[in-house]
Computed example of a mutant assay.
Amino acid sequence: MTSVGAWVAGTAGLLVSLPGRISVLLDEIELLVKRIDLVTSGAAEVHLRAAEVTDAAATITETAAQLSTAAQELLDIYQPLALQAAPMARRFVDEFSDEEVTAAIALVDQLPELTARTNAVLPILATLDTVAPEIHQLLTTVEDVRHAIQGVPGFKFFKRRGAAD
């Protein structure tokens, strides 16, 4: 009976210590649940931040796609022009000296004044078609006067005398 007594004593001791052990176990389970809650709330926060980052990345990706489309459209428009103009631009750059570029800049600087003066002269030039017949008539008259003067007696004498001086 010793062994039964020992067993009964051991079982009784176990039963007596069981509420304390269960209490310790419940405390540990409670701590474990708090830790799990902390991890869960941290994971939820990380999930929210990841969702924000994902949304921002989607916005950036969408904007990049729009910019890429716009850039491709510009390339489609201007690439043929650039390829066509490249040899002319190369020749232009190769042929111009610094002095010519400086002169071209000075000319461009004077364009407003040149434009104003040209606009002032254009009305006068527009009237030249009406003046031309009058100038022709004047030249004809001067030629007639010259012939008349040459027919004056003694004119050759005055002409030689004028040439001698």
Rank of each mutant, 00 (worst) to 15 (best):
M1A: 14
S3P: 02
S3N: 08
G5M: 01
G5A: 00
A9V: 12
L15N: 03
V16E: 06
V16Q: 10
V16I: 13
P19D: 01
P19T: 02
D27Q: 14
D27M: 05
E28F: 05
I29E: 13
I29L: 14
I29W: 08
E30C: 04
L32S: 13
V33Y: 05
V33A: 08
K34L: 04
R35K: 07
D37Y: 05
T40S: 13
G42F: 01
G42T: 06
A43E: 06
V46H: 12
H47N: 06
H47T: 12
L48D: 10
R49M: 06
A50G: 05
A50L: 12
A50I: 06
A51W: 01
A51T: 11
A51M: 08
A51Q: 12
A57S: 14
A58N: 06
T61H: 09
T61V: 00
E62I: 00
E62L: 12
T63F: 04
A65W: 03
S68G: 13
T69A: 11
Q72N: 04
E73D: 09
D76K: 01
I77E: 15
I77V: 11
Y78L: 03
P80N: 01
L83N: 07
P87R: 01
A89D: 09
A89I: 14
R91C: 04
V93G: 08
D94L: 15
D98S: 02
E100F: 12
V101M: 06
V101K: 13
A104K: 07
A104F: 06
I105M: 08
A106H: 02
V108G: 05
Q110P: 04
P112I: 05
L114K: 11
L114W: 15
T115E: 08
T115K: 11
T115P: 01
A116D: 13
L125S: 15
A126Y: 10
A126F: 03
A126G: 13
L128V: 10
E134N: 11
E134L: 11
H136Q: 14
H136S: 11
Q137I: 06
Q137W: 07
Q137Y: 10
T140L: 10
T140C: 08
T141Y: 14
V142L: 15
V142F: 14
D144K: 15
V145Q: 12
V145I: 15
V152C: 05
V152F: 03
F155Q: 13
F155H: 14
K156S: 12
K156R: 05
F157I: 11
F158K: 04
F158S: 07
A163G: 04
